[in-house]
């Protein structure tokens, strides 16, 4: 038996799940897809006393559009996000990011909310949430709140989630007219943890200049990184290869990645510089398609 002993509960409602999380506090862990948690259990790096399995909770398994937002509830698996006609049509950036999470077997089981709650610095969705100005919907006995990525992701594998709180959905705003987004990453093989990734959002005004740009990077620190200086470079300018190259140069100065066994800081900085124009070009090309 690989994991240490634990007790297991499979509540049928979100209220029951929260009740369990409140009762057991720090001793409890939420089990969703298990693709990040179970390796930690098998290696005994985590030894929670109670697992609260949310797979039997009724509902929370369909991506829905509501009043200008797309909600991805907590039981939605990556494969659903990858194939969702709604996401593919209205927020293709989310589908293309999810497609790059792990391998097919992992995407069949892992959940999008679970990936966000795990907060691996090499994970795709935190950066996409940041670039799209999305929210993490968190429920507890005190009610529901919608948290910004900036407030939610604290550092490596650490979020603002408190005992008794449960991520019940991700909320993505639908893109306004004249805006688009794209995601690119570099991993040594498909499915490997990415060394660096970029989510880019562009919003043009009627004259064709960039009214707002948002750039979020993954793999260059403990949390998704918002490249504010490069965003400022883009703002008020017309999209062009030269402008995107300037933004990339700014990003490579702006990020401060760590070296680890997978890549040196210098290499991650280089990847950021290479990926920024790719993401921006892709977003810009999508704007062209809409016209």
């Amino acid at each position: 038996m690989k994991p240490a002993t634990f007790s297991y509960a499979a509540p049928r409602t979100v209220e029951e799940a929260i009740e369990l999380l409140e009762a057991y506090g720090d001793d409890a862990k939420v089990l969703a897809g298990g693709q990040s948690l179970v390796p930690l259990l098998n290696m005994r790096l985590a030894q929670p006393k109670v697992l609260v399995d949310i797979n039997a909770v009724e509902g929370f398994d369909e991506i829905v559009e509501e009043e200008g937002f797309v909600y991805v509830p907590m039981r939605v698996r990556h494969v659903q996000g990858e194939r969702s006609p709604l996401l593919r049509e209205k927020l293709p950036v989310v589908s293309e990011a999810v497609h790059q999470i792990g391998h097919p077997q992992i995407r069949n089981r892992g959940t999008m909310c679970g990936s966000v709650a795990h907060a691996d610095p090499a994970s795709e969705l935190p950066a996409v949430l940041m670039a799209l100005d999305g929210r993490i919907v968190v429920k507890s006995g005190d009610g529901e709140e919608q948290i910004t990525p900036e407030d939610f992701f604290l550092t490596y594998l650490t979020t603002s989630l408190q005992p008794g709180q449960l991520v019940t959905a991700l909320r993505f705003p639908l893109l306004p007219p004249n805006s688009s987004a794209a995601f690119v990453e570099f991993a040594q093989r498909p499915g490997d943890f990415a060394l660096c990734g970029v989510a880019a959002y562009l919003h043009l005004d009627e004259g064709g200049t960039i009214a707002e740009a948002r750039l979020a990077l993954m793999g260059v620190g403990g949390t998704p990184f918002c490249a504010e200086q490069a965003e400022a470079v883009l703002q008020g300018e017309r999209p062009s290869a030269a402008l995107f190259a300037e933004a990339a140069e700014t990003v490579s100065q702006e990020v401060d990645p760590d070296s680890d066994i997978h890549a040196s800081a210098e290499y991650r900085r280089h990847l950021a510089k290479v990926l920024i124009p790719q993401a921006l070009e892709m977003a810009a090309a999508r704007l062209g398609e809409e016209r």
Partner: peptide, 25 residues
């Protein structure tokens, strides 16, 4: 720990890693 794929089985028709799913589930 979910890397090698040797334990792949079908759970309700989709391929999953059986080392990352508990039997009770």
């Amino acid at each position: 720990h979910g890397v090698c794929g040797a334990c792949t089985v079908l759970l309700n028709d989709s391929a999953v890693r059986s080392c990352l799913t508990f039997a009770i589930q």
